[in-house]
Amino acid sequence: MTPEPAALRFENVFVAFEGEEVLHSVSFAVPAGETRILFGAAGSGKTVALKTALGLVTPDSGRVYVFGQDISRLPERELFDVRSKIGMLFQESALFDSLTIEENVAYPLLNQKSIRCGPEECRRRVREALRFVELEHTLEKFPSELSGGMRRRVAIARAVVTGPPLLLYDSPTAGLDPITANTIITLIVKQRDLSNTTTLIVTHRYQNGNLLANYRYEPQTGRLLRTNGAGRRTAATRFLGFKDGRLILDATQDELDASTDPYVSKFVKHNG
């Protein structure tokens, strides 16, 4: 059977590390342009799910399709082409310590084979990506010279600099104060709405999911506007709940709020 044209699709994915199962029969699909919010307790398999989508973790069984291409058994060298369509923000930013901010953001442009980019063009795109996260003045600095929130913003610039159609964010607001966290989420919504990218985001904060589901970026004011539940975004945003490596919920925000499952409602209440 030919899989439907989804940006990302998991079919019965199992992953185990040293005999311990971390993903158990996980199946979901994300149509192009939609948003999925992955939530669950620490160690429930959210990060592994993102890394499996990127081909950094190979599933023991099951299939993963990225834009219709089965990546579950691809060798590392062939995965590079698939990865050039995906941007990833790692949990602790994962900026290269030994490179300047400019070199960090230019890294995917210079190293992804499918991208042909001359020095001038690269410089222009790096500046554009850093302008997007409002950090154009940090070009010559090193990651250690920036605050945690700034590093996270640089990592977003690095993830979006190639203009990938699929973006994965692993706990983008973890360890940040509420104001910086909102700035990061605003950037994620801005990127999603301006480029119409498919977005997967791992988060512990219910507020983040709420913002992604009910707000859209307003280019004139540069702020987020509430869509009052009627916008296209609300319907195109679903919440995926993970518990002990299993996907226990794939629901809209209304269904999530109405859930009587103690594990799910604990997440909603604790963060509400």
Partner: peptide
């Protein structure tokens, strides 16, 4: 441990 190796793979480098 800071996921820079994963980032390297994600960004097109072996």
């Amino acid at each position: 441990v800071t996921e820079q190796i994963d980032a390297m793979r994600a960004l097109g480098t072996d």
